[in-house]
């Protein structure tokens, strides 16, 4: 699904990533971990073509990065930026923009139904007509997730989807991901700690100073092998994972 070889990214005068290899295969849920500034966001942003590669190559769904990629099958959730755009826009409008891609510049027929279905998935169907500025940070993040989901992607790339997000939104997000992963969605997700997603993650990749230092089992199963920051977060990760592992009741979002 995603294949990166020797990716180097240079921003200004500094090398942010040197020679990162990353492969995500069909059906995997890969967590990208690492301290602040280790290059996690830079890596996912270069994987979707937002940042230019200084060296190396990226393939998405078997095609080299560019117009030949089947963008309709890729759902990207960028890190939430708090700055609102200048003109108010409703949750429905923002989500509907996810229906456009390289080969479609106009909204397809039935866009409203599809948009509302995606909002339903993140539990915001009743807020469709509200301006995004009236939503909480967590709800805004869910709108961005719905925008990626609306095109029914086969692979999702998420950049810190739960950072600074309120607890109900985190739980709603985890529930949504559980359902989609069980339906075969492939996921690459940048996380600070595994948190609610721990039971889903099949593999963890840890970045440190722009290089991969760990690629294998999630930190919970291999304590002490990773960087200091992730190993300190491991106990909390495991405890949270075990205490929250059997969430039989599906949380009601919103």
């Amino acid at each position: 699904m995603i294949s990166a070889r020797g990716v180097c990214v240079r921003l200004g005068a500094s090398d942010i990533l040197h020679g990162v290899d990353l492969t995500v295969t069909d059906g995997e849920v890969v967590a990208l971990l690492g301290a602040n500034g280790s290059g996690k966001s830079t890596l996912v942003r270069s994987l979707v073509g937002v940042l230019p590669l200084a060296a190396g190559s990226v393939e998405l769904l078997g095609s080299p990065l560019g117009p030949s990629v089947d963008w309709e099958r890729v759902g990207y959730v960028p890190q939430r930026v708090s700055a609102q755009s200048g003109v108010p826009s409703t949750a429905r409008e923002v989500v509907s923009s996810g229906l456009l891609h390289g080969r479609r510049l106009r909204l397809p027929r039935g866009w409203r139904t599809r948009t509302d279905e995606a909002l339903e998935l993140v539990g915001l169907r009743d807020r469709a007509q509200d301006s995004t500025s009236e939503l909480s940070g967590g709800q805004q993040q869910r709108v961005l997730i719905a925008r990626a989901l609306v095109r029914r992607p086969d692979v999702m790339i998420l950049d810190e989807p739960v950072a600074g997000v309120d607890q109900p939104s985190q739980e709603a997000f985890a529930a949504t991901m559980r359902r989609l992963v069980s339906q075969g969605l492939t996921v690459l997700v940048v996380l600070h700690e595994l948190g609610e997603l721990a039971p889903l993650v099949t593999r963890a990749v840890v970045l440190r100073h722009g290089q991969v230092v760990h690629d294998g089992a999630p930190p919970a199963a291999s304590p002490g092998t990773t960087t200091r920051r992730t190993s300190t977060s491991t106990p909390t990760t495991t405890t949270r994972a075990t205490t929250r592992a059997p969430p039989s009741t599906s949380p009601t979002p919103g």
Binding site: R45, V48, G49, V50, P67, V69, W71, V74, Y76, P78, S85, S89, E93, V94, S96, S97, G98, L99, L100, H101, G102, R103, L105, R106, L107, L144, R147, I157
Partner: peptide, 23 residues
């Protein structure tokens, strides 16, 4: 008006527009 959806998308979130393969 004809390109409204695409222009909205690119004006609203340029990063997402790039990651959707939009021109």
């Amino acid at each position: 008006l004809g390109l409204r959806a695409a222009l909205f998308t690119v004006s609203q979130d340029e990063e997402f527009a790039i990651a959707s393969g939009l021109p």
